[in-house]
Design a protein around this nucleic acid. Structure first.
Length: 354
DNA sequence: AATCCGGGGGA
DNA sequence: TCCCCAGGATT
């Protein structure tokens, strides 16, 4: 149980800092439009504000309201999401837009349970939408909040385990300044992002420094505690860009692997990297084909993901005419430009094609 | 509870 | 390199 006095001091200091010192500005800050708040929160999941800004701008320009998004072409939505990562967010965005537009008449749920029922909306996002749009007394718990609270209260529960996460949610709910939940939530996240940073926090500028456990004990770097280390896998993928008559072979990725719903070219994955001689053999790509001209063989691209290190090479070949290719379809250049590709591929395309 | 899902930027 | 970002879904 946290002392009432301490909670009061915490939120008072926080809100005073927010009103007088906090210079952070963002397009969605302070607005009450649930659609735009939801959109910004989905974009910002595990994504830095700086990285999300342009995506937010493009989405709001193309889809000014929930009905516009619900009625939009999926391919275009994915194209606008291209490069942002975590593509299931985009899939869920589409599902939720249609659901709210068609089933709820365009009105967002105004309760925590209703918000949590939306695809792609978890505890954090439900609290964010609920407090920002509707003033519900729900405490947001994101990476910023857990860092601030772990340091201030000296909480050593690991933030990357469900049990620890629950502890933080309980503390966050208790600390929440209920007079203005939206303002409080905004303030604590901004403080975490600009002052109480992961490395080298600016404690001298922090309004909470006098009673901060980590500051008092000079143990800022010990918080928050994480228990797991991420295992990484190496993958060796080779893309054959088959061109004929102004078209190329592509397919949409399905299944549980990375890049679900995005497009790709003819994929050959091996346990080891292929050398240039392999890449020139038709057999490497699955059988003998008609006469082909190799236009380009790229050097290795390294593409680093959270759980995987991908080693990729591209081979661009030209055929005299289009032939069927199991699992892939021929698509004109013009249409290819409207498809969403993984960053790995779009980087190659930017450099060699479009 | 453990694991997976992207891409980028800062130290 | 490593860390971590306005997390959530799946297994």
């Amino acid at each position: 149980m946290i002392e009432k006095q301490l909670k009061k001091w915490f939120s008072t200091q926080l809100l005073d800092w927010h009103a007088t010192q906090n210079k952070r500005t963002m397009p969605w800050k302070g607005i009450k439009d649930a659609y735009r708040i939801w959109l910004s929160e989905i974009i910002l999941q595990q994504t830095r504000v700086q990285q999300g800004l342009d995506y937010y701008r493009r989405f709001t320009e193309n889809f000014p309201n929930i009905h516009a998004l619900a009625a939009a072409d999926e391919t275009l939505i994915f194209k606008l999401w291209e490069g942002l990562g975590y593509y299931s967010r985009c899939r869920n965005l589409i599902i939720t837009a249609k659901y709210i537009s068609k089933e709820l008449g365009g009105q967002f749920p105004r309760t925590q349970e209703g918000l949590l029922a939306l695809k792609g909306v978890g505890n954090y996002t439900a609290a964010a939408i609920g407090s920002f749009a509707f003033g519900l007394p729900l405490a947001v718990v994101d990476g910023n909040v857990m860092r601030v609270l772990s340091r201030f209260l000296g909480i050593k529960e690991p933030i990357d385990q469900p049990a620890g996460k629950k502890i933080f949610e309980q503390h966050a709910a208790e600390m929440l300044g209920k007079a203005d939940p939206a303002l409080y939530n905004q303030a604590i996240m901004d403080l975490g992002a600009t002052i109480c940073k992961p490395q080298q926090p600016d404690c001298q500028d922090c309004p909470l420094r006098k009673k901060c456990h980590a500051r008092v004990h000079d143990t800022q770097s010990h918080f928050p505690v994480k228990s797991k280390k991420i295992l990484q896998k190496n993958r060796f993928i080779h893309y054959l860009l088959v061109e004929a008559d102004g078209s190329m072979l592509v397919r949409q990725r399905k299944g549980k692997d990375i890049w679900q719903d995005l497009y790709e070219f003819v994929l050959i994955e091996k346990d080891e990297p292929a050398d240039e001689a392999d890449l020139k053999k038709a057999g490497f790509w699955g059988g003998s084909r008609q006469k082909q001209t190799i236009i380009d063989i790229s050097g290795p691209f390294i593409h680093q993901l959270t759980h995987q290190k991908i080693h990729a090479r591209f081979v661009h070949v030209k055929l005299e005419k289009k032939i069927p290719w199991e699992g892939y379809e021929w698509m004109e250049f013009k249409k290819i430009k409207s498809l969403a590709f993984p960053r790995l591929i779009s980087r190659y395309l930017d450099r060699h094609f479009m």
